[in-house]
Amino acid sequence: MKGLGAIERQMSQPIDIDEIDVMILKALIKDARARLKDVAEDCGRSSVAVLKRIERLRSLGVITGATLFVRPDVLGLPVIATMGINSSRKHEDKIINLIDKQINLVDPSASIGEFDLFTLVYAKDLAELDRISGVVKQRSGARKVTVILWTGPAHMIFGNIDIQPKRS
């Protein structure tokens, strides 16, 4: 099984990316639907070259898709909260399963620090938020569920991530 470990290590090695790849990623963070021609112009490369790079980043699993961000109140979900869950280890899988089934809970993650699990909740009003929190508590065996309500507009500044080129 020695070979398998080496393969696993290789698969988890960070991918080499250069300055042009970084420029492309930054352009697609700004707008994943940007026209290839415009991205190529911004990077000072041909459309063909940029397309090849994007295909490479996709095939290596760096680019996995795209996300559209919509004002949640337009979809009747103006209430946003983070739910921090404290549980015993044996309940963690149960809780993650529950979160996957509950349509209002998104972006669940196991965490270390203040909470064991962290998830984002969208609800139509505070009463629904309260209900969801109750369901999670009851059905999951969680020791404690902490609801952290987001007030004011959430500021999403994804372009602020400072991706660096990497060469091994």
């Binding site: 988890s12 960070p14 991918i15 990316i17 990623l25 697609l28 963070i29 707008d31 994943a32 639907r33 290596l60 699993g61 760096v62 680019i63 996995t64 898709g65 795209a66 996300t67 559209l68 961000f69 919509v70 004002r71 337009v74 999403m156 994804f158 991706i163 990497k166």
Partner: peptide
């Protein structure tokens, strides 16, 4: 109108370290 406020490429950051 700001109803759609972004379309962001999804990146698996673990691939970038």
């Amino acid at each position: 109108e700001g109803i759609i406020f972004g379309c962001v490429v999804s990146i698996d950051l673990s691939k970038l370290g």
